[in-house]
Design a protein around this nucleic acid. Structure first.
Length: 489
DNA sequence: TGAAATGTTGGGGCG
DNA sequence: ACGCCCCAACATTTC
């Protein structure tokens, strides 16, 4: 190798699409390397959980945004499409006389297996190879019970991490980054074919701004406006009571350490009890994300298999028509349909409503949580294997710290409790907008005169309920208790 | 990060 | 004035 080559490092971006508080980048920059920023598109290496449609839309714009930031600081993001990431990296290393490769860790099994191979192979070639934690506050293997086992219940997990020292502070690069100009052509973003062919995502930009700036904007807005009332507002789907940072965190456009410390700082300056409780509740939600990664790391099979063995042979219903009705938001239960329509239109669904629609799929329709997980995977801009798996197994009652099988959400009561005036339902189901609040969550009970005055003919303008909740609940309880009795034998 | 069924209590109507 | 019944309102248990 030539002398100059010893100062060149390749920064491999993947799920950490930011320049702020990027440990791999900071490390290389501190040492004084010239940096070649690379993104390799090889979705087949992610197996069956390669990014879904909504995630690909986000990824397209997020990469665009990263490329722009790098360009405005004098560099160029090298985007490559490849059948083999290892092969691609080796070629780039050769062409650019690279001596070190740095990246930030990912925790999904397909990444871990592939990255280990890459690390082994590049190390064998004599390169300096290092991976870093950019994605989590606590590495999954750093948190364990008194018996040195992984946690399966959130509260003790939370107690444990609460006893730890504060996670490292976030930091931006100390000195100006020396970008290395690529000698290889970058492929055009459109070649990655990340955008949907049909105009499905056309209104996503009205609701989200992918990229590091958009992430920063969301955090600033949350800290300034919504954080103070988070505790009560977060459960009201008609309100903008949540941070909506999930897709930004998933793609690593903002550092979770940055989020954590800014909320902590606000907490330390706040005396008012209500606000303090809100901020603490938000930090706890951030810890749920950590818990999800902890679980997926230690129980990687749970993305496809129930964590609890008793559910291994649970007789889920095969009902393509009902699954379709659920996906398309025509179950006849307004709060459920509103959620699924919000999802389809915006690539997002309010968390309270995620729980309601999940309970409906798994308990009322008794369709497998995996079907729900797959649909969310394809349609959510924040689809994340750790959080999605935890969420669906929680709803299905088959996972860690899961809702007990007998906990069945009543979609009408949930609607009345969390969407009292029906604002959320009316926003996403305009055909019901003239229905009085009293009936908005149970149009099937509305007197015929009220329905006709509101311009609603059930079965025509809006569907009849596809199942009777009371009957469905009883059937679910019967099926689950049967499973329980088998499980004992 | 439920809801329904069942149990208990206490005020008020009424003979 | 007293006992009885009804039934909210709330608490507890069960699914």
């Amino acid at each position: 190798m030539t002398k100059s080559s010893s100062r060149r490092a390749l920064i491999w971006f993947r799920g950490d699409l930011r320049l702020d508080d990027n440990p791999a980048l900071n490390f290389a920059n501190d040492i004084g390397y010239e940096l070649l920023p690379v993104y390799v598109h090889a979705p087949h290496e992610e197996g069956e959980w390669a990014p879904g449609g909504a995630s690909r839309w986000w990824l397209h714009h997020s990469l665009d945004s990263l490329a722009t930031s790098i360009e405005s600081s004098g560099g160029k993001l090298l985007v490559r499409k490849s059948e083999s990431t290892l092969h691609e990296l080796r070629e780039l290393i050769e062409v650019h006389q690279i001596s070190a490769v740095f990246w930030n860790r990912r925790y999904e099994l397909s990444f871990r297996e592939r990255d280990e191979e890459i690390k082994k192979s590049l190390t064998a070639l004599g390169l300096e190879v290092k991976s870093f934690n950019s994605h989590l506050l606590w590495e999954p293997w750093e948190v364990s019970t008194g018996e040195s086992k992984p946690y399966q219940v959130f509260t003790p997990f939370w107690n444990k991490v609460s006893s730890f020292d504060a996670p490292p502070l976030a930091r931006s690069p100390d000195k100006k980054v020396k970008w290395l100009a690529p000698l290889t052509a970058s492929c055009d973003m459109t070649e990655l074919k990340l955008l949907p062919e049909l105009p499905w995502a056309r209104s996503f930009p009205d609701h989200f701004r992918p990229g590091e700036e958009g992430a920063r904007e969301s955090l600033d807005k949350f800290v300034a406006v919504a954080a103070a009332s988070y505790q009560s507002a977060r459960d009201i789907p008609a309100q903008a009571g949540t941070s909506r940072l999930s897709p930004h965190l998933h793609f690593g456009e903002i550092s979770v350490r940055r989020v954590w410390h800014e909320v902590q700082e606000l907490l330390s300056k706040t005396r008012e009890t209500k606000v303090r409780e809100s901020l603490k509740t938000y930090l706890k939600e951030i810890a749920w994300r950590e818990f999800a990664y902890h679980l997926l790391f230690h129980f990687p099979q749970t993305s496809n298999q129930p964590l609890r063995d008793a559910f291994r042979n649970f007789p889920w219903e095969e009902s393509p028509e009902q699954l379709r009705a659920w996906q398309q938001g025509r179950t006849g239960y307004p709060i459920v349909d509103a959620g699924l329509r919000e999802l389809w239109t915006t690539g997002y669904m309010h968390n309270r409503v995620r729980m309601i629609v999940a309970s409906f799929l798994v308990k009322d329709l008794r369709i497998s949580w995996l079907e729900g997980a797959k649909w969310f995977w394809d349609t959510l801009v924040d689809a994340d294997l750790a959080s999605n798996t935890l969420g669906w197994q929680w709803a299905g009652g088959c996972g860690a710290d899961a809702a007990p099988y007998f906990r069945v959400f009543n979609p009408t009561l949930q609607g009345e409790k969390f969407d009292t005036d029906g604002d959320y339902v009316k926003r996403w189901i305009p055909e019901l907008k003239n229905l009085p609040d009293k009936w908005i969550h149970k149009p099937w009970d509305a007197p015929p005169l009220v329905l006709s005055a509101a311009g609603v003919q059930l079965g025509k303008d809006y569907p009849h309920p596809i199942v009777d909740h009371k009957q469905a609940r009883d059937a679910a309880l019967a099926a689950f208790s049967k499973m329980k009795s088998y499980a004992k034998i």
